[in-house]
């Protein structure tokens, strides 16, 4: 299990993967918006998406878990 966390506070603009998808390291999996800027969130490792913890429109704080890889 590997948790992907938010590197800064912001709003979830888009979720590009779904539970069950296989992702590679460096793949853009989520888009956050902070201070009027789009911040792509890249997967920190390869694996299968076990769970997505956020929905589009959610506000997240730095360190919040965005998704879990297995």
């Amino acid at each position: 299990m590997k948790e992907l966390t938010a590197s800064m506070a912001g709003t979830v603009l888009n979720v590009m993967v779904a539970a069950g998808d296989t992702v590679t390291e460096g793949q853009e999996v989520l888009m956050l918006e902070s201070m009027k800027m789009e911040i792509p969130v890249e997967s920190q490792g390869a694996g299968r998406v076990a769970e997505i913890k956020v929905n589009i429109g959610d506000f997240v704080n730095e360190g919040d878990i965005l998704l879990v890889l297995e």
Binding site: M8, S34, M35, M37, I39
Partner: peptide, 12 residues
């Protein structure tokens, strides 16, 4: 701007 001067990412 409140941002990282190298990567230009926001820094609240």
């Amino acid at each position: 701007y409140a941002e990282d001067p190298v990567r230009f990412l926001p820094s609240p």
